[in-house]
């Protein structure tokens, strides 16, 4: 799939934002006043920024309200509803903490759970697509949740939890790449099934329908060099987990170092998210004999 900046930014930032919101909802850390203000500002900034970014790739963003209507069937719609619900419900909770020194714990829990649900719905948007076998694995939602919880934890200053989660995330991310590499083949899609003409022999594209690339090819067909991908995976693994964990566990805590860990993780997150899209092979590529 085409790794468009808007979706990479959207899923990454909103994941972090809602991840942070989860921790804040459960009082980790317990914050009040200005500290709370800054924490919630960051959480909102990330979540809302991500959502706004996601509208950038819309052809008709002015109609975005329509997207809340189909929550009964559409994960994208559900994501919208969940995100808005989270943002709306978190607001009084945050206001309480910031301005009134008031902790409406039940509301906080609800906010935290909604944040998780939001992250899950985001993951389902991709995970549901049978057309992209690399996404269509149970690990996808798990990873999205882990990214959000680990990154959120980092930002919430939950050093130990974050470090543990980062380790699990790193391992699972490695596993996901492993499995993902085989997913397309395992799903059994080939040009022969795509055309139903396997009985004629090995098929190959002789001529594209049109001599210049079209929307489908631009959107769904993105080929990443194997070497390039491996390099990026390595960078991602090191920066998203190994390096931050090393800092957190083996160096004395300092805010600067925490920031470095977060920055490193974000780099890893963006890299892996870029790979998440760029390496995802859509079955429609088969018709163009490209994946």
């Amino acid at each position: 799939m085409h790794p468009s900046a808007s979706v990479i930014i959207f899923t990454s930032l909103s994941g972090l934002g809602f991840g942070l919101m989860f921790y804040l909802g459960f009082g980790m850390p317990e914050v009040r006043g200005w500290t709370a203000f800054w924490f919630f500002l960051i959480a909102y900034g990330l979540a809302v920024g991500g959502l706004i970014s996601s509208t950038l790739h819309l052809g008709n963003p002015q109609r975005a309200m329509n997207a809340f209507s189909q929550w009964r069937s559409s994960w994208l719609s559900r994501e919208g509803v969940a995100a808005v619900a989270t943002l709306v419900l978190t607001a009084p909770y945050a206001i309480g903490l910031i301005f009134y020194d008031l902790n409406i714990a039940a509301l906080g829990w609800l906010s935290g759970i909604l944040a998780l649900i939001t992250i899950f719905t985001t993951s389902k948007i991709y995970n549901q697509l049978k057309t992209v076998p690399r996404w269509n694995m149970p690990l996808t939602p798990v990873l999205f949740l882990l990214y959000a919880l680990a990154g959120g934890g980092l930002m919430a200053g939950q050093t130990l939890v974050a470090a543990m989660l980062l380790l699990v995330l790193t391992l699972l991310q490695l596993a996901a790449w492993q499995m993902g590499d085989k997913a397309f083949a395992n799903a059994g899609h080939t040009l022969e099934t795509a055309t139903g003409l396997g009985h004629l022999g090995k098929m190959r594209l002789l001529e594209s329908p049109h001599s210049s690339p079209n929307y489908l090819m631009r959107e769904m067909v993105h080929v990443v060099g194997r070497k390039h991908a491996l390099k990026l995976r390595a960078i991602s693994v090191v920066t998203l987990g190994i390096f931050p964990v090393a800092i957190l566990l083996f160096l004395p805590f300092s805010h600067t170092l925490a920031l470095v860990a977060i920055a490193s993780h974000v780099i890893g997150l963006f890299t892996s998210r870029w790979l998440f899209f760029a390496e995802a092979e859509h079955v429609v590529g088969l018709y163009y004999d490209k994946r």
Binding site: L191, T195, K202, L205, P209
Partner: peptide
Amino acid sequence: RVHTYEAK
């Protein structure tokens, strides 16, 4: 759109 394939 019309694709053209070759089968062997």
